[in-house]
Structure formats: C-alpha cells, structure tokens
Write a protein that binds this DNA or RNA. Structure first.
Length: 113
DNA sequence: ACATTGACTCGCG
DNA sequence: GCGCGAGCCAATG
C-alpha cells in the first residue's frame, strides 16, 4: 500500500527529524522517506502541512527554494540564523550544516586531532 | 485520458 | 555562478 497519504506521512516524519541548527535538501528528505526522485512531492507536502520545520529545508544547492527577497525567503533566512545556521548570500554551506552530509565532525576532527 | 504546473535536480556550456 | 533543457512525478483542471 503506497498511498499518497502514506508518502505524505513519511515525508512529514523525516522533516520533523531534522535536528535544530541543521538543514536538508528536498531530494535528501525524499530519499530518507523511502521515496527516491520525489523531491517535488516534498515541496508539495511542505506547502500543505503546517507545524513542520519548513525553514530547515533547502535546495540541493544550499539555497532557499523561495525567490530571493520574497517574504518566505527572508523568513527562512531569519529562522535559520536564529538557530545558529550561517546564511551567506542567501545560501547555506551544506558541508557544515547539512544533515546527512555531516562532514562537521570529520573536518574539525581532522584539524583538531 | 491529456495538458499544465510546480517549496526539485542534474548535466552542459 | 548562471541560464537552459531534460527528466521527474503527484496533483489539478
């Protein structure tokens, strides 16, 4: 049973699991929800559901999915910075704040060893 | 059933 | 880094 509703629930669950101070891409979320190639579906669910940490979801490039300067764009940058995420030129460094691509430990571990 | 529409992604130039 | 085109797929009319 792979109903659309089941997919929606799976996606919501994954998004709620994104740690504070971290971000994840649409494709990443879809994959983690067991729905490869469903990035657009993630966007749809975000728009229809509320109560989700939508601001922690960005494009694969690290940029916001909202148009630069738009309401949602500014709101997202603001919320992210509020939880410690560094946003440079409307972009997040996935190597440092990406959820899955958590190179943080390895990078610093290597330098500070 | 067909066409359009995206909070997307990737490869090319 | 930016624009373009192609691939993608559920929802909508």
């Amino acid at each position: 049973m792979k109903s659309a509703k089941a997919a929606q629930v799976a996606i919501q669950r994954v998004i709620r699991a994104i740690p504070r101070g971290r971000v994840a891409s649409y494709g990443e979320i879809a994959a983690r929800a067991g729905l490869p190639r469903r990035a657009r579906l993630v966007g749809r669910v975000l728009g229809e559901s509320d109560g989700l940490p939508w601001h922690r979801v960005v494009r694969a490039s690290g940029r916001s999915a909202f148009a630069p300067g738009s309401r949602g764009f500014r709101e997202q940058c603001q919320r992210l910075r509020a939880e410690g995420v560094v946003v440079v030129s409307g972009k997040v460094d996935l190597a440092r704040f990406g959820w899955q691509r958590d190179l943080d430990a390895e990078i610093w571990g290597g330098i500070l060893r």
